[in-house]
Amino acid sequence: MKKIEAVIRAEKLDDVMEALKSAGAPGLMVTRIEGHGRQKGLTEQFRGREFKVDLLPKIKVETVVRDADAARFVDIIARAAKTGEIGDGKIFVSAVADVMRIRTKEMGDGAV
């Protein structure tokens, strides 16, 4: 099993959710986060002083899928989240040791 964590633009959440849903993703978790990668330089102002904001609001979408599906879902997220400009975000893929469905105590792929 793989966990896909995608850090995306807040305004792309609808597109990503829509794409994952129509591709049959098993489920997803959404968190509002702040962070920065290489993208910096959004300007805000406060009482006449302009300043660069280091931390930008982003959305993290997480989903856990079977190994065989991971590449496909990564591609689907990337396509839905892309604008082509700096700041589109990143997708991290990591191995998941095991999964349990609490209600039935099923383990592994069947619980995804």
Binding site: R9, E11, K12, R32, I33, E34, L42, T43, E44, Q45, F46, E50, L55, P57, T83
Partner: peptide, 20 residues
């Protein structure tokens, strides 16, 4: 794009809420 980002940032370079 401005509509997606929201008017607070696109029209006023401000936002109402921070998380941290």
């Amino acid at each position: 794009r401005e509509e997606e980002i929201g008017l607070d940032l696109s029209q006023h370079h401000e936002r109402a809420y921070t998380m941290i």
